[in-house]
Simulated assay, not measured.
Amino acid sequence: MTDRALAVVRAGALTTVQDRGRPGHAHVGVPRSGALDAPAAALVNRLVGNPPGAAVLETTLTGCALRPRCPVTVAVGGAPCRVTVDGRPVPWGAPVDVPAGALLDVGAAEAGVRAYVGVSGGVLVEPVLGSRSTDLLSGLGPPPLADGTVLPLGRPGEPPARVDVAPQPAPAAELVLRVTPGPRADWFTPEALRVFTTLPYRVSSASNRIGLRLDGPALPRSRTGELPSEGMVLGAVQVPPEGGPVVFLADHPTTGGYPVIGVVRAADLPAAAQAAPGTPVRFTAVRRR
C-alpha cells in the first residue's frame, strides 16, 4: 500500500466530494455547489495543512469509513461525531495521523447534519469547470461515494496545525436566519409577510443540498398565476404553490418560476447546513446593505 489513495469502506447515507464550488457559471445553468458548511470545510483543510480550497469529503448524518493506502493526516469537523482509527478513539476537530491500511471511522452526527473530512494533500478527483465538487442537481463532478470507491489524493503541502482541538460553533438549537425582503415580496399578502418574520417553522426531513425545506404556516399570495422563470441566488427563499418556504442552498437551480419572498444572508447559511430535521427556524427581516 504505497499509492496515494483513499478507499471507501462505508460510504454512509450521502458522502460527496466538495470544495469551494464552481462560481461564475450561473448564466449557463450551472449552480455554484461546494461545501454547504464552508467554514467547517476550510477549517479541516487548515488543520491538515491543505490550502483552503482543497477538496474534502462531506458526510450526511451517518458518517463514513475510509482506509488510506498511504500514511495521511486527517481532521474531522462540522457536525460533532465519534472518530476512531482501528477502533481506537481519536480527537474530533484536530489533526490525526492515520497509518496506511488503518480504518478511519467517522461516526454518526451527534448534533447537526454534515461532517467534513480533510485529508493531507486533498482529494484529487478530476475537476469539472474548475471544481471537484459533486453537484447533485446538475450531476457535475464525481458521483456520491459508494462502498469500494477509491479516491486519489494529492501530495501533502504545509505541516499540520499544532492544536489539540480547534474551536467550532455548535449546531444551533434554534436557527435564526436574517432575511432581506424581496424581490417578489409584493406577490404575498401583508399577513403572509407578517407570518414569515414572526411565526416559527421547523426543518423538514425532505431537506437536502438543494434546499432547506420548512414545515409551518403557509404564506398566501396576493396574486394568482406564475412568474416567468427568473434567476435564483444562493439563500433565496422560494415559496411553491403549497405555501411552505424553501431556502436555496449550494446545489440550488439557477432559475425558477415561484416567487422569492426574501433572501437569507450568506453568513447564516453554514448554520442552515447543520440544521437537523425538526430544528426550529425563525426569519428576521433586515434592510438591504
Results as ranks from 00 to 15, higher is better:
G112W: 05
L47A: 07
D37T: 04
T62S: 15
R155W: 09
A65C: 12
D105A: 15
P99D: 11
A111D: 12
G121R: 02
E110G: 14
R69Q: 14
V44Y: 11
V85N: 06
E158K: 07
A94D: 03
G53E: 08
T84F: 05
R155M: 05
G78Q: 06
P160H: 13
G154I: 03
P89C: 09
P127L: 05
L151Y: 10
G154W: 03
V48H: 04
P143I: 01
A161D: 09
L57A: 02
G77W: 14
D86M: 08
G154N: 01
P39S: 13
G141C: 04
A79F: 11
V150T: 15
A40E: 12
L124P: 02
G63W: 00
A108E: 14
S131A: 13
T149A: 14
L47Q: 11
V72R: 02
A111E: 08
E110K: 06
L43E: 10
G63Q: 02
G157F: 02
A42D: 15
G154C: 04
R155D: 13
L140S: 02
P52M: 05
V72A: 12
P99M: 09
A94G: 11
L153T: 01
G107C: 09
P144G: 11
A100C: 11
V90Q: 15
A109W: 05
S133D: 01
G49A: 02
P160G: 07
T149M: 06
P95N: 08
E58V: 02
G121T: 05
V56F: 07
C81I: 14
P143G: 05
L36H: 10
L153S: 07
T59A: 00
A94C: 13
P95D: 03
V98T: 08
L137N: 12
L151A: 13
L104V: 10
